[in-house]
Design a protein around this nucleic acid. Structure first.
Lengths: 355, 355
DNA sequence: TATCGCTGCGCGAGCGATCCCGATACGGCG
DNA sequence: CGCCGTATCGGGATCGCTCGCGCAGCGATA
């Protein structure tokens, strides 16, 4: 099958089956009004010749492009890469995306885009013009970039915003960051902790705010204060070091820290070790992300599992299935869960008494 | 710029600049025979209108598709993903690939393909027919799959084989697995180790053989035996556990292990801990891959760094620049390096005496 | 001065698919 | 038996772009 240099076209199939191009097209696309007998004949020809429609030609003739574009932040991705930090996003989102795309006969393409405002429109615009995708998946911090969403809306391209809880143009997909933070905090309170700090992410990510929200809410429900217990990082290791030190210096009675990323949690672990504190005996640690790393640290880290792959998968499915429908927008929540490992333990007795 | 629903085409630019389509095309593709004055005028129109040529249309009209296809093993990728093992390959190769592609105006697309022989031709054939890529990057274990290379050669598509040291059709890109293994082994010998075991990868990966080769060579150069010191795993954690146990049971005098993957090294570390052996005091450990995980284990692992991203980058560059040239084939080596961390140390004095 | 050869530019065809619309066959109904 | 709606199928235009070729100018050569 498929001998010869030239690729087999719809015309070859038509000739082989003795029908018109139109009929072959109808069979391929599952169109109506074809006798089952003819349909079978055409299908046989397709199989024998190994015909696969050309994506380019399909796109040309005004139908769909069967391409979903995934937008990632170039700067962050590059930094992750250079420091061999493990690009938690890229591989997870790719896998979720690719798998779901291929299930529906689509393909996913990744595009790295600068966050800087003057580049965004140009780069995204170019990618869209060149690829003419049927849908776009936005990841943080692009998910709530007005320039981007406006551009997409104007070009009438369905899009999904990952990691955003706010309804707006396009579908929003979230793991419920406030709920997740609330869950982690509540669990620590349940373990007897009273002084629970949070190392938040950068403010430009709206999910940072939501996590703080959930953390405060849980503390408030038990009449616990949060003042002085909040530090912000940029998700990176170094910022985690700084934040942990500040937290520990300021609060000698601290018994638990929730970090907004695995890297920052790793840093916290290191700082604690340096200061002679044992995790989890003296200090409990919970992180966000649950990347592969945290299973192999000493001790393994308790973490909020971000179902990135599943979230992206849902996003893609929404775009493909309901992309152009009216009620396609809204907010979809993919539940996060708390994976308890060995970095959390009951608060030291002295500490619970102090509160 | 770029207002309105319809995308701007080459015709719009031609009208705006008052020239023919052909001239615009020449300007866009850097063709010759255009007065610089006219060229500037066209360029101005392009900028003002925000024109970007449609990939689909370019492909249609017989020029290149500007797409490089990256083939990964579906089974292994899925397994890595399900177990959240960190898909070292996917993200690294994607980043190297995407960056280099975009530098040359190309785009990279990832395709997951089954290893099973009867699926390979069908899946790869379909992907090629649909995408009509200008080049294909093969990763292990597909790099030396005869069915695949034959299919690619027949369709006259340039391709690169990552992780293969054998010359053949297409370019081969390797980090020099024998040399890398030799390097690691030599270093251990230098540290006084005499009983150095190897946990190899599965035989279907040719690089497994090369690593064994390099290991044996280094041992041989110092008159050291290798019998009984070789076990094979499948790169996965569990297989590493089995192999390490077998090795330790069989060789009470073992002082060093080289594992062919980080996961297997992690398993070795765990087994050693279980048996009350201290790494690196009682047992030195070297792993292959150097994924982000090994920096955060206790102790951090000494590892051979696989420059995957750079290798893929080189592969893509070769395909884009010299894909259709005659001398394009051959073997390109991207040097690996040994990153020494804390899992390696001088052999315990008792052991060196034993040898 | 007539011809050659090169540069600069445009016209028309064609890539592979889909879509609109028209043509044909067939069955049911008055 | 004639009319009409529906199911089936084919013809031609079209999408945006590139390629081959033809046709002017214009300096250089014989």
């Amino acid at each position: 099958m498929a001998r010869g240099r030239k690729s087999v076209t719809i015309r070859d199939v038509a000739e082989d089956a003795g029908v018109s191009l139109q009929t072959v097209s109808r069979v391929v696309n599952g169109g109506p009004n074809v006798r089952s007998q003819l349909r079978d004949k055409v299908r046989a020809s397709i199989d024998r010749l190994g015909y696969v429609p050309s994506l380019a030609a399909q796109r040309m003739s005004g139908s769909r492009s069967y391409i979903i574009l995934a937008i990632n932040d170039r700067e962050r991705t590059l930094a992750d890469w250079r420091e061999r930090r493990g690009t938690d996003w890229v591989d997870q989102m790719l896998l979720g995306g690719i798998l779901t795309c291929s299930k529906h006969g689509y393909r996913m393409m990744v595009e790295l885009i600068d966050t800087h405002s003057d580049h965004v429109e140009r780069e995204l615009g170019a990618a869209i013009s060149a690829l003419q995708p049927d849908g776009v998946v936005l990841t943080p911090p692009h998910s709530e970039n007005q320039l981007i969403t406006a551009l997409l809306a104007e070009r009438d391209i369905p899009f999904a915003r990952i990691g955003s809880m706010e309804p707006g143009p396009g579908v929003a997909l979230t793991m419920g960051d406030d709920g997740a933070a609330h869950l982690a905090t509540s669990r620590l309170i349940e373990l007897g902790h009273r002084r629970i700090a949070m190392i938040a992410g950068p403010a430009q990510y709206s999910l940072s705010g939501w996590r703080i929200e959930g953390w405060k809410r849980a503390l408030g429900e038990h009449g616990l204060p949060w003042e002085g217990l909040l530090e912000a990082g940029d998700f990176g290791y170094e910022s985690g070091t700084r934040a942990t030190r500040a937290l520990l210096d300021r609060n000698p009675d601290l018994t638990a820290i929730i970090a907004s990323s695995d890297q920052m949690a790793l840093a916290a672990l290191e700082v604690a070790r340096d200061r002679g504190m044992s995790v989890p005996r003296d200090l409990s640690l919970v992180s966000f992300d649950n990347t592969p790393i945290v299973r192999f640290t000493q001790p393994p880290l308790t973490a909020i599992d971000q179902p990135i792959a599943e979230t992206v998968s849902r996003a893609v499915e929404q775009l493909i299935l309901h992309g152009r429908e009216e009620g396609g927008d809204g907010v979809i929540e993919v539940a996060a869960s708390l994976i308890e490992r060995s970095s959390t333990a009951p608060a030291p007795p002295s500490a619970s008494g102090t509160a």
